[in-house]
Design a protein around this nucleic acid. Sequence first.
RNA 1: GCGGCUGUGGCGAAGUGGUUAACGCACCGGAUUGUGGUUCCGGCAUUCGUGGGUUCGAGACCCAUCAGCCGCCCCA
Length: 428
Amino acid sequence: MAIKIPRGTQDILPDASPTWQWITEKARKICQLYRYEEIKTPMFESTDLFHRGVGETTDIVQKEMYTFKDRGDRSLTLRPEGTAPVVRSYVENKMHGWANQPVKLYYIGEMFRYERPQAGRTRQLTQFGVEAIGSDDPSLDAEVISLAMAFYKSFGLNKLKLVINSLGDLESRKAHREALIRHFEPSIHEFCSDCQNRLQKNPLRILDCKVDSEHPLMATAPSILDFLNETSKQHFEHVKEALDAMGIPYEVDATLVRGLDYYNHTTFEIMGADFGAITTLCGGGRYGGLVSELGGPEVSGIGFALSYERLLLALNAEQVQPEIENPLDCFIVAIGEAAEKKATELLYLLRQQGITADKDYMKRKTKGQFKQADRFGATTVAVLGDEELEKAIINVKNMETGEQQEVAINEFPQYVQKLVENRRDSHE
RNA sequence: GCGGCUGUGGCGAAGUGGUUAACGCACCGGAUUGUGGUUCCGGCAUUCGUGGGUUCGAGACCCAUCAGCCGCCCCA
């Protein structure tokens, strides 16, 4: 049996790859505007990085990692997310000592999670993410959120919803955590087994549970927003004011709890609509203890990650098409062996001049070659056969008007060049 | 990891146990010995995701397995 693509992965075929290039271009462009610089980290890291950086209690670490041993008996893991590796690099390269602070980075790359695939969820996913590390200024939170929103807007997407929340600082989180345990503990046996486990490990995530969302204790659960201390409150207020000033609408959702352990203060999610159960396009937030946890100084960062796969769902739902096209300037129809050889030479000349050019490689008849040229959307076709070779000319046909012109073969490249330039001028 | 649905040529899709597996699109060839987008004619699945079983006979029924989609969980 033929070998098939691994589960949860996909080939990006030529008809889809322009869209992928388009997304990448938009991402780079927006990062350039906001002055974030690209960082590339390895596809695999020491397994410990994710245990320490992402959190032992998270689903990612507990059941979704592609972990393997290399020949030197090192435990390595294909990266399931981008923040921990970037922070590892921040610490390893002592970026906290760089002149420009905060350090503003972005990455584009593949992530790997062992999950059950469905629409918008694959085992290899492509993420664009941003990390601004070294400042706890709340206006930086707003900048990162606005970058994400501007990115989506640049595609013309409109059905977006920004949801924000604050988890507060360590002190606030601790107080809230205790209140949650007090709230749920007496009746915890009425909750699902996941929630029973969460009670001591991470009671915050009980709020996130879909199974027990109708339980009366959910509605009356203590809200993190009531436990924010003065510092945390001010931070959150500042973020909201900055968003208001930029005219970015948002909703505050006190139950928005991000899945990874390292978040504090601001968390946010951008949701799309109209494409099935999965609506989260982008998730992010501020992380406090992560840098020091990985051996760096006590600084915090803020970032987000979003996937191409889900952006694609949103683009489909709103019927957005990429702006990329690749027109064929000239197709050479060669009739006979001698002409075929000459065509190869002429193609090379055209391409050296920046003219997109192609020919037949399937030994098609003349008619078939024209059909191919038409399918490619060639704007001109050059016909070369024995008759032309004898007279040292080539017949250049305009495929829109059907007009055909004899051109001396040694003037052919310049002639096509002129046609292409005229066409470009008239289109501008 | 759990539950539901699905799997026929490059694509879409008929076929609900009986001989040579409809049809549409795409593709290739011819009508037009060297000129496209229209038309007409012809060609194009030793085989129905894979493996096994039931049967005189299986694309259809059964079992297993793989994959996809949807839902749950969770997340990007």
